[in-house]
Design a protein around this nucleic acid. Sequence first.
DNA 1: TTTTAAATTTCGATA
DNA 2: TATCGAAGTTTAAAA
Lengths: 250, 250
Amino acid sequence: MVAEKLTAPDPETLVSEAKAAFRDGAMLTVQARCEVEYEGRTSGYLGPGDRILVAKPDGTFLVHQPTGHKPVNWMPGGGSVSARTSEDEAVLLARRTNPSERVEARILEAYGLTRFDATDGATYEESGTEAEMHEYIEENPDVLEEGLRIVEHERESKYGFIDFFARDESGTPVVVEVKRIQATLNHFDQLQRYVSLYEETNDTVRGMLVAPSASERVERALRDNGLEFVELAEFDTDAKGATEAKLTDF
Amino acid sequence: MVAEKLTAPDPETLVSEAKAAFRDGAMLTVQARCEVEYEGRTSGYLGPGDRILVAKPDGTFLVHQPTGHKPVNWMPGGGSVSARTSEDEAVLLARRTNPSERVEARILEAYGLTRFDATDGATYEESGTEAEMHEYIEENPDVLEEGLRIVEHERESKYGFIDFFARDESGTPVVVEVKRIQATLNHFDQLQRYVSLYEETNDTVRGMLVAPSASERVERALRDNGLEFVELAEFDTDAKGATEAKLTDF
DNA sequence: TTTTAAATTTCGATA
DNA sequence: TATCGAAGTTTAAAA
């Protein structure tokens, strides 16, 4: 049986089921009223309430309230989850080192428990990422500017990586920073950092921020600092085209 | 009953249970073999495998594989989740607008389903955040430098907010950027942006990045640009002290 | 292991 | 509603 379920397990049953799941590498889901403590990079406390607890075989531990995308408390994979009874209550504890941290869920009342012996060999395939936007630009530099030549992709500099190092029609060097989302001040900063560095050793250099859009403040910052904004919203690579065809077929 | 559980529901049962849960504002958890599509800011496809699906009453939808902290596919709250049968299979669909996106999980085999009528009025209380680090510095500016006076907290400038605007013992203005984690190049960028701006209208200004640590590259970037790094790892506010006492009592 | 930057980042605060 | 910056960010890639 792939999934085994218990309704309202008592603390001892919950702990023994949890231990068995951890031992066997199964996923564990618990619906419970609980309180939660976190101690690590910061510290925090969550008072009693109803939540879903999920423990994965890689040490991942999640505490989900009835709303919100993010777990209210969690532990990333790499550590381990354990179960024990304490003062007649079941306690789930997730720990890891580097950084050293712990999440402890004290279960005041368990409503349900599911053990799930899951098998999943699939990996997620994604299109429309920034990496694909890079590919598209590399193959079609003219969309940025007529006559632009890409000299180098992901060039390492003293202060970080430049997305593209290029030259315009007249041979002037162009530092290009690419974003697949609306450009932010931090993105402006990044470009400015690379351009400043280049200016230390060379006279003329252009800086170009490529993105589907930019806020007013970002456009002004670029203008004030002699940098350029190039709007690029649409891009299509072979990979993306292939995936889209597949999704349409579905 | 707070949590109701079904083992291996057929598609029709799953859909009707899911609809009822969505209608009543309950949390839904499903253990299933499924395939998943995402279409929105990017697009992607995840082939068949065993996952835990969670739907929350606020429209949050999560698809969790057996490993990893982050859901492989998800929808943040704000939209809605619906259920239907299609070609004799149960399908869960999460949608939202702004941005327009959708996640569709086609359930090939359901192993378990739990409806959870959860009530949770608690809010997470946290200590050790950057906001508390700000409080600590405001009350103890000497930890940054002997004789430093804080003039303004969160000062707005043309290109963003300065954490602290201060003056040193000799009256020279100091722009202070504070991070509670190891300083990154982006943090250096932020400080540099504020300092450059100030230099446009004033002659002398110091820039100070405060953090528990910084990488070699960040330290060099600061040095090369005449900015300063102040190491500050420990800080304690009344709030943090209070919470720590409580956790110790536990 | 450390660093660097992306992310379907999410989230909260602010204007 | 858009923007800005923090986050216990996590994750992946590269050195």
